[in-house]
Amino acid sequence: MSEKSRLQKLFEAGKFVVTTEIGPPMSADAENVRVKAREISGKVDAANVTDCQTSIVRMSSIAAAVIAQSEGVETIMQMTCRDRNRIAIQSDILGAYALGLKNILCLSGDHQSFGNDPQSKNVYDIDSIQLTQAVASMANEGKFINGKSCKTPAEFFVGATVNPFADPEDIQILRLQKKINAGARFIQTQAVYDVDRFEAFMEKVRRKGLHEKAYIQAGILVNKSLRSIEMTAQVPGMAIPEELIARMRDADDKQAEGLKIALELIAKLKTIPGISGIHIMAVGWESIVPELVGQAGFLPRPEI
């Protein structure tokens, strides 16, 4: 067994974990990733590195994650099922682990119709739950999907996502349960704006004891402008109370209001029983993360 990731150690030590995201550039610009990594170094515990998010061609999550780690930021490699079959997925998992990545977040991936290449073919050889099971089975039992043994397996700390606001609502708890049964050890939620609805969801999570089987991070999306929150509201599976959109509409200083809303949400979310951390998505406004983390009282980050 190789050394655990910092993320895993923090969760296991009962620390309240703070993560954010690095979106790789639509280019081969390594410096772009280095700059983003330096900005958040020491301000968060780890950073997700997205895998061609919204189906737009970007530097691969593995390559960008390795660059970010060279700047001292631990990463959570995102992996989707959209672009690779089980051969490519497992090959990438081995390679990523060999390069020093230790955390993985398993996703199905946005449909390619969202991106710049809607003409492309998708794969979906396996779905996100099957991916979760595959990575966990390699980590725990040293097995490939085909059941054969892997001599030096990738021992990722396995994460998955849940969207408490997607439909059918009843199924989301079931999906979470399935992901945890499949081997997910930590869970990141879709961005929360509707705290009441999220509390009701967490009540169900606690009733099933799922928060004791996996570490659950509440997702936060910080919006820079009215357009940003309006666009977010249009994303399928996103629930934003009209009141919050109105606040952004009425605010003179949109950035200050966006920050204020995010801070208020964090203050509420971190007290919900069963929440082990916050995951901050600052799409298009990554530079705000250090300030947001500071004002939320999350600094300094714990040593481990």
Binding site: R82, H111, S113, F114, T161, D167, R175, P236
Partner: peptide, 28 residues
């Protein structure tokens, strides 16, 4: 749209698929 075997993805809303409001979510 993603040939999922284990339930809907996070893009299912109001019974519709994330790719289009005119496409039913199979998992719904």
């Amino acid at each position: 749209s993603k040939s999922h075997f284990n339930g809907p993805c996070g893009g299912s809303q109001n019974g519709k698929c994330e790719i289009s409001n005119e496409t039913d979510c199979a998992w719904q």
